[in-house]
Write a protein that binds this DNA or RNA. Structure first.
Lengths: 190, 190
DNA sequence: AGATCTGTCTAGCAGTGCTAGCTTCCGGGT
DNA sequence: ACCCGGAAGCTAGCACTGCTAGACAGATCT
């Protein structure tokens, strides 16, 4: 049965399209502008079609966020592996993380601010966030005491996320970004 | 004219009542449950009365957040001034900050997560957030290079906020909270 | 060809933030 | 003591939200 295969493929493509459009719309006009009606209109289907793919609007946001974690993992990986020296690599990871948050504020919001209930740390955590956190862990591996590696990663991640999310709300002086990063890196890592 | 005074006083009291009820409701059932109808019902007035006090629902959240910054400033001040040694004082401020965020998640959300557009850092920043940030600066004053004091404070604050907000989303292992705090404090401050 | 079944749409529900416009009632002037 | 102006508050409604029941069409299988 090849028609069924085609059907399934088309369905999967449409699901990706929904996720794409949701992210684009959120990035362009904010998540408040992502209503089921507007989303449906842009994918050129009626509203109920969305609900044949996702159980709720939240599930759509969750799908966007999940893909975001995959993208973040890729970017952190690229940053980490492009410098031989540990310290350069660490700094590159930090910069990549903050660049990601700044470049795609709506995506970052879906991943970290909205209550999307993606499991984390536990065994049933999806691979994407696991991979993203894994990159942070890997970057720290050369400098941390092995037994405290994950703890170290959590602290580093907290500092990065705090910076990203306070900056997002314009509560840090933008012109001091570099000074903050330098201070943070030297303090946290020797 | 004493009747007018009474009127104005009653009006001010009602405004505080609205803020109280909004915060209580948010803390009890989350901000999604804070609708203008439910809010109006609980203060025992009709919906339009809310709009004679505040320009929008967002303005109500903003008022809650602003008062929250005042509370945070008070708690940080108490923590900071109750230990003579700088390091103890710093740790007490950090603990107080995270305790505040954990004890009043909805309030913390209004202050830091929702898009409440409270000015910060700039000259027209309200006194409450200014005072809260001032406490962090004051706590760091003995350990930071004077010229980089505010930068230092921003980094410290970022680490605290990152911890608070990742923990809020259950993305940090709760049982390692103390280990993270110890690591953070020793790394950031000698 | 006829029956079934899958896919999609229209129309509608309950609830949201916010507001226009009516009513009621209090305070002050004659 | 009366009336009247203005303020204060209410009812009712608008345009929107997320979500769904039920109708309808078109493809698939017997």
């Amino acid at each position: 049965m090849s028609t069924r295969d085609r059907r399934e493929r088309e369905r999967a493509e449409r699901e990706q399209l929904i996720i794409d459009v949701a992210q684009d719309l959120a990035e362009a006009e904010g998540w408040d502008a992502v209503t089921t009606r507007r989303l449906a209109e842009r994918v050129e289907y009626s509203q109920p079609v969305l609900y044949s793919h996702f159980t709720s609007k939240d599930a759509i946001v969750r799908a966007v966020a999940l893909r975001g974690f995959g993208m973040l993992a890729d970017e952190l990986h690229a940053a980490r592996t492009s410098y031989p020296k540990t310290m350069d690599s660490l700094r590159a990871v930090a910069d990549a993380y903050l660049r990601f948050a700044k470049a795609r504020p709506a995506l970052y919001e879906a991943m970290f601010v909205r209550d999307v209930a993606i499991a984390f740390g536990t065994d049933d955590a999806p691979p994407e966030p696991r991979a993203a956190f894994g990159e942070i862990v890997a970057a720290l591996e050369p400098v941390a005491i092995p037994s405290a590696l994950e703890t170290y990663a959590e602290v580093f991640w907290s500092a990065l996320h705090g910076t990203a999310s306070l900056a997002r709300r314009k509560r840090l002086r933008p012109e001091y970004h570099l000074a903050r990063m330098d201070l943070m890196m030297t303090k946290l890592f020797r």
